[in-house]
Design a protein around this nucleic acid. Structure first.
Length: 567
RNA sequence: UGGGGCGUAGCCAAGUGGUAAGGCACCGGGUUUUGGUCCCGGCAUCCGGAGGUUCGAAUCCUCCCGCCCCAGCCA
């Protein structure tokens, strides 16, 4: 695993400007950041932005970035997620080297610091129930009320806290709270809970603990322990910064990290919320966390989105503080840009229509040389078998061609890519009137796709030799939600999943070279889009996922005329 | 409502007192053995609004409006 090749210098967003100034003015030596996921779900495209930011800043400033699991809530966390998150970050192209950490590694130190706070009269054990604490917290406009246990003697606090740890009390019986200010206008400062009793098995520490620190008590101190210089998080933690600073200032921590907040990423036609994604999976509205329609990293990977494209996207959207919802088209553009450059071109026919070349010898097979990637001459060519009976795309023929339709039609000549020009002579239909076959002739002088007389058909079609084509299942994916802002209208977001977002084609055919494409390789089916083999493939029965379609001007024209007629 | 943030094109986003970058999307045109790619051109007289300071304001000041976050023993 290596870090991605250095990309063009990142634009100086406000975070990078702060870091640059800190370095320039000597406030920090080595820049140290961290990506701090909670292992309670899978990473999604929003996390990718954070990963790219944290690892990107560290790399650009010659520092390092830690991967630290914020595993302070054993009720929700699982080893499965830890493993998946590590794999996702690595896949995205980042390397944390030796710097893999867990907040749970610091439980003992954190406990000692809690004791330190108690001894300093800055924390106390509260016997109030969760409901009572809530009732005492006050509201946005009314100050909170102090707990009757707030002025407990230090010794009693120490004793009780030790007994909390020893497991003498049931869940929820008592908590440790910071002693700050119940009248603070910032609710996070109204004696926040630092420790709670949770008799739960922790994926890393097992049953060693039954008291667990809250996020607020664990995060900043973990940053300090690791020497994090810039602790980057999302906007909703802005209100927590005074508490983050209060703890750092009141504890004998080894360093003084600073927290900075940026706006999280939102994307149209999908949802970036672990909670909602979890329910989509649980309700069976998608096939799993890695259903190619999901915005999770594992799904994007399965869908064939290259990591480089996702990194490019993260750079393109920038980092700022304004709430934003980026159009998914921008992500798709980044993916297409990478794939256009790297994906080998292949032939695949999604909806086959038989073509018989009446003037081509039966039994004859030619190996046509077809370029692997016109964008990259180095990619060379491959052999694709050609014969008398072919398959073309049903959508590439129109018996009564409409205006602007350039493809095959009765009497019309088109080019079969890297093969021959063919002319449609006859349309064969079944009793229902459905077109089942086209009888065409070819021009032997156009072998390879060029005419000696310089004539140039208006269309070039992809094709497959019927005798050599390999059957494949092809899964077409679109946006999970047709609505660009799912749920924004207050409706049931789960009812608005687009049933058309997944279409499975069982009758597709691909060229012979695709029979055993390894998972992870995304190819372009010429004129159609990018496709990648799905792990569901078995030898001889490949399954392809459509990553994205190619941009399609013809489809746009059709849609425009359809709308014109409809309206 | 108290606190914390944010408002620059349809969507992101630069801009830090000297006269509105860039990308996506969209609309034209050219090239093309992918209706792809690529190339060329168009797309904010205006920066949430109103005042004010200044020779000069998206940038400074004042007031107003709108949107987001916070009342978990989640993160």
């Amino acid at each position: 695993m290596s870090t991605p090749t250095p990309e063009p210098p990142e634009r100086g967003d406000f975070i990078r400007e702060i870091v640059a100034a800190d370095v320039r003015e000597g406030r920090v030596g080595e820049v140290v950041t961290r990506f701090p996921p909670e292992p309670n779900g899978y990473l999604h495209i929003g996390h990718a932005k954070s990963i790219c930011l944290n690892f990107g800043v560290a790399r650009e400033f010659g520092g390092r970035c830690h991967l630290r699991f914020d595993d302070t809530n054993p009720i929700k966390e699982e080893q499965e997620y830890i493993d998946a998150i590590e794999a996702d970050v690595r896949w995205l192209g980042f390397d944390w080297g030796e710097h893999l950490y867990f907040a749970s590694d610091y439980f003992e130190q954190l406990y000692e610091w809690a004791v330190h706070l108690i001894e300093a009269g800055k924390a106390y054990v509260d016997d109030l129930s969760a409901d009572e604490i809530r009732a005492h917290r006050g509201t946005f406009t009314e100050p909170g009320r102090e707990s009757p246990w707030r002025d407990r003697p230090v010794e009693e606090n120490l004793d009780l806290f030790a007994r909390m740890r020893a497991g003498e009390f049931p869940d929820g019986a008592r908590v440790l709270r910071a002693r700050i200010d119940m009248a603070a206008p910032n609710i996070n400062l109204r004696d926040p809970v630092l420790y709670r009793i949770l008799h739960a098995e922790h994926p890393r520490t097992g049953d060693a603990w039954c008291v667990y620190p809250t996020y607020d008590f664990a995060h900043g101190q973990s940053d300090a322990i690791e020497g994090i210089t810039h602790s980057l998080c999302t906007l909703e933690f802005e209100d927590h910064r005074p508490l983050y600073d209060w703890l750092i200032e009141n504890l004998p921590v080894p360093s003084r990290p600073r927290q900075y907040e940026f706006a999280r990423l939102n994307l149209t036609h999908t949802v970036v919320s672990k909670r909602v994604l979890m329910r989509l999976v649980d309700r069976g509205l998608v096939h799993g966390w890695d259903d190619p329609r999901m915005p999770t990293m594992s799904a994007l990977r399965r869908r064939g989105f290259p990591a480089e494209g996702i990194r490019d996207f993260a750079r393109l959207v920038g980092v700022a503080k304004a709430d934003n919802t980026v159009e998914v088209e921008m992500l798709e553009h980044c993916v297409r840009t990478v794939l256009n450059r790297t994906a080998p071109r292949r032939f695949g026919v999604l909806d086959p229509l038989r073509v018989v070349l009446t003037d081509y010898p039966e039994g004859k097979v030619e190996e046509m040389d077809v370029p692997n990637n016109p964008e990259d001459p180095q990619a060379g060519t491959r052999k694709v078998p050609f014969s008398r009976e072919l398959w073309i795309e049903r959508a590439d023929f129109m018996e009564e061609p409409v205006c602007k339709f350039f493809r095959l039609a009765p009497g019309r000549e088109v080019r079969l890519r890297s093969a021959y020009f063919i002319t449609c002579r006859e349309v064969v239909k079944d009793r229902e009137g459905r077109i089942v076959e086209l009888r065409c002739t070819h021009d032997p002088a156009t072998r390879g796709g060029d005419a000696p007389d310089g004539r140039r058909p208006k269309a070039t079609l992809h094709w497959l030799s019927a005798a050599h084509a390999v059957p494949a299942e092809v899964r077409l994916y679109g946006h999970l939600f047709a609505d660009p802002y799912p749920g924004a209208d207050g409706g049931d977001i789960f009812a608005s999943v687009d049933p058309e977002s997944e279409k499975v084609l069982s009758g597709a055919l691909v060229e012979p070279s695709l029979a055993e494409l390894p998972v992870g390789e995304t190819v372009q089916f010429e004129r159609l889009g990018y496709f990648c083999p799905d792990p569901d493939s078995v030898p001889g029965a490949p399954v392809f996922n459509r990553t994205l379609t190619l941009k399609d001007t013809w489809a746009k024209l059709q849609q425009r005329s359809r709308q014109a007629q409809g309206a």
